[in-house]
Design a protein around this nucleic acid. Sequence first.
DNA 1: TAAAAATACTCCATAGGTATTTTAT
DNA 2: ATAAAATACCTATGGAGTATTTTTA
Lengths: 297, 297
Amino acid sequence: METRHLRYFVAVAEERHFGRAAARLHMAQPPLSQQIKQLEEQLGTALLTRTTRRVDLTPAGEMFLGRARNLLAELEQLAQDVRTVGEGASGVLRVGFTGTATYRLMPGIVAAARRDMPGLQLNVQGEMLTPEMEEALVEGRLDVAVLRPPVRSTAIELTFLEQDRLSVALPENHRLAGREELELSDLTDEPFVCYPPTSAVNLIVQEACRRAGFMPRVVQVARETSTLLTFVDAGLGVALLPTTARLPSSQRVTFRPLHDAPAVDLALAWKTGNDAPLVHNFLKLCEPVAHPEGNTP
Amino acid sequence: METRHLRYFVAVAEERHFGRAAARLHMAQPPLSQQIKQLEEQLGTALLTRTTRRVDLTPAGEMFLGRARNLLAELEQLAQDVRTVGEGASGVLRVGFTGTATYRLMPGIVAAARRDMPGLQLNVQGEMLTPEMEEALVEGRLDVAVLRPPVRSTAIELTFLEQDRLSVALPENHRLAGREELELSDLTDEPFVCYPPTSAVNLIVQEACRRAGFMPRVVQVARETSTLLTFVDAGLGVALLPTTARLPSSQRVTFRPLHDAPAVDLALAWKTGNDAPLVHNFLKLCEPVAHPEGNTP
DNA sequence: TAAAAATACTCCATAGGTATTTTAT
DNA sequence: ATAAAATACCTATGGAGTATTTTTA
């Protein structure tokens, strides 16, 4: 049984007339009669009672009509749905966000997706660490991740969302607060307030200090940026933070750029070769969210 | 899109290999490739990613596979269901029963249908009168009826379930109880106990008495046969009843045959020309119920 | 007898087969 | 180098068209 048979039968059953049904199907009457006959033979059951004056449905035909209509509608719906999935306009996308981005970027991205890609279903996981997401992307457990470069795997592609550098956060009255620009080596003997050891920013801070020739003396750890700034304000130590962490807060903390500041960018990451239209469309969707109006510091 | 495309795609998607899928479909590989390509062109979307070593599903293909499987299964189910409906093995049958038959025959018939035609759904209406059922059959509101002939319409066909005649029910000590056989005219001056005026049996009784040259003097009406026999037993009058009404009851009522007894048969009735297999199968089903072991009185 | 479906046949579009090439590992 | 899919080309099944007959109301 081919869908042709369903279409033809529905036409005849609705028109109750082979001639009119054939016209509606843009074909001649005899082949239509033949196809219906073929259908009935395949089913082993009469679907229509025909006289020269009337075409009527048998009980079997009545049943066939209803369900054939449904099947044709389902088939049509399937074709449409497959098209939207193929175009990347709908589907399920698993997205991971690194710590701070979870709260700063995710809401905007989810809102933008809801608005511009209503067929897209986002499966979001927040508070992930870069190495975890890297592995998840390679193994196909995530489609896209918002993480802090660098990534180790060559099977990951990136587009940068925020081009950022580390700045030094100092208490207002710190001896270095008067300097316009600092170098990492200026901080050799300073007490440090840091993100947790496993965080991406912390790893970058550790590595940068090692290159600058010293091991930072960590006196306090904080998970939240606001907490961290409070500790700096309280004079516990200095912190190395992404420049974007300078929130319009009430903190009296001084930010000073670093001459040899390492990059702590945020990037969208996906597995190399994952050119699924859904991923592509999602990446385009994210651009304006990441750079609201080109505000790179 | 034809079901062919669905079958072919499911085969390829399941085998993940055009060659093996083609073998499973008993065809060569190139036309299979062509049909899949045609399907993808019609949908405007790639369903498969092929290399020479791997065939993989795109997200669109993944979706298509699931729903195509469902559609094919639904189609298969439809074909099977249409076959059983066509064979008269399943479907809905509207059956009407006349008063007494509602309780005496209907339970057995419904039970037999449940046992032998599990696909049959009986839509039963009991306590109907012959003229109502006759009209309902002609107008297509009933498919089959168990009624008491005769019927007026020539558009109704009958098969007899119970060939029966009226007998006289008398109190044990009645003056006519000693006679072996009676005639209607013997009852001219007797008081009568009858079914309600609209019942089929009553109409037959009235007509028979008119032909015998008298109008029965009705002293009591009863809807239930058992009530009616109680009235006879109590000496209120005589009754004309189908012989089968002589139940193995505790009543001390004497039954006497009538020489000129009119027929009060029960028959299965259906609309002339309604040769739906369901009706035919149902009629066959009813035979052994009506004549448990050929007990025609 | 007239309208409509079924037959009888013809044709050609296309599904399917065969041979070969291309491609990716 | 090899396995597998794509391409090119051919064949033939059967879907669709034309002419005609059959049916029944």
